[in-house]
Design a protein around this nucleic acid. Sequence first.
DNA 1: TCATAGACTTTCATCTGATGAAGTTCGGAC
DNA 2: GTCCGAACTTCATCAGATGAAAGTCTATGA
Lengths: 233, 233
Amino acid sequence: MATDPYPDTARHAHVVHALGARIVDGSLVPGTPIPIEEQLVNELGVGRSAVREGVKVLAGKGLLETRRSAGTRVRPRESWSLLDADVLSWRFGPDAQPGDIRVLADLRVALEPGAARVAAERADAAAIQRIDEALAALHATADDPDPFIGADLAFHRAVFGAADNDLLLYIYDMISIALRSVRQVHTRSVAHNKETLPNHERVAVAIRRRHHRKAEEAMREVVEVARADALHC
Amino acid sequence: MATDPYPDTARHAHVVHALGARIVDGSLVPGTPIPIEEQLVNELGVGRSAVREGVKVLAGKGLLETRRSAGTRVRPRESWSLLDADVLSWRFGPDAQPGDIRVLADLRVALEPGAARVAAERADAAAIQRIDEALAALHATADDPDPFIGADLAFHRAVFGAADNDLLLYIYDMISIALRSVRQVHTRSVAHNKETLPNHERVAVAIRRRHHRKAEEAMREVVEVARADALHC
DNA sequence: TCATAGACTTTCATCTGATGAAGTTCGGAC
DNA sequence: GTCCGAACTTCATCAGATGAAAGTCTATGA
């Protein structure tokens, strides 16, 4: 059952990861019963408590469903907590599906312009300053593909933070988990990076001026370009 | 420790709910250690296994953190899985904070216009038909405040469904959990309901015609009105 | 042949006790 | 006053026992 990223400690976390990853990547099909507790104990080399705790965690994320005496089965995909950090990292692993890349890119297009708009409505001085700082970092790293990714993520996070909405920020953080894994989506050439700077600048300026329409449009430009890049590769 | 919605069975679920609700409503402050296992066993009237399984589930949702020999403590709010179905239902209970209503209304403004836009880009014939059916149900229940709420939620869900993006749909389903609880956000007068019909209609028509700009604008109108209503009350 | 009641089996649910490991605390030596 | 270590606290995990509920099989009667 693959390698074990949790050597001695955190046995129950090992169970969570081992089963969770196999469910999300499709090895364990929804509706199918998973091996019985005793067999998991043998396969995973942990005690029954650890198995049960792990299974309960996955049930809490909507991936599993236990029924007394009827076994434990994988729940249908509609029940999964798709924006759970673990579920996302299992899904957007090193080799994510092309379809998932599209989902991610579309989600940004659907979400980020609106978030920029609300940010322009709600941003206070401190939030605006954080955006400006993030923008400066963006400019500073434009020649450096690797740090630029982090600066880019930080910029977008600053925008979401300015909207003063914890649910929105949470959504961004989850997107960002996925983005970071499938870094191709964000790994553009230096030329690409420089091209996107003016758009980012326009986002920051528009928010600073509380111009929600312009903030939204500028952000749309940013994420549309990112989507085109992502789908092109 | 409040009443028990889980009488005999599902002991661990009782633990999850009892602790989770108290964490999210602020009774248990982040950073504070919660009672030790033995005490929880006594307070909650369940065995140690049930307590441990429940605590693990909450840890999986980012609400708790256990450290061997150092107790179990409430994690900072930034770590919570804010879009988890349980966390949302604890937060947006019968008496949600006014600030949370604002967060919800803003989130819709940030999200739904963009979702409608992507829906207009991606909708296939079946999705468009589902939207039309939902629109018909909306018209049919306009005089009936209670069924109208359901029809409204169904319409918006159909729009999100048309975007062919499971993450987006998941986000909507979570929003919908919150909306359903704080139904004031959606409980408008019959007059209000009738006023909003043309806007919904415009959303449906724009998506049918693949006109993303109009779909977005119409949806913005819908959620801006809803926000104004929600913040006004 | 077929339907059905009841015994049997499987499998999760829970409790309990025992052992271990890793922080915490506190006293004592210097 | 500072540092070391022993005692203590508290979670981590295993193992065994009991229970409950759902499915399965079988024998019986029509």
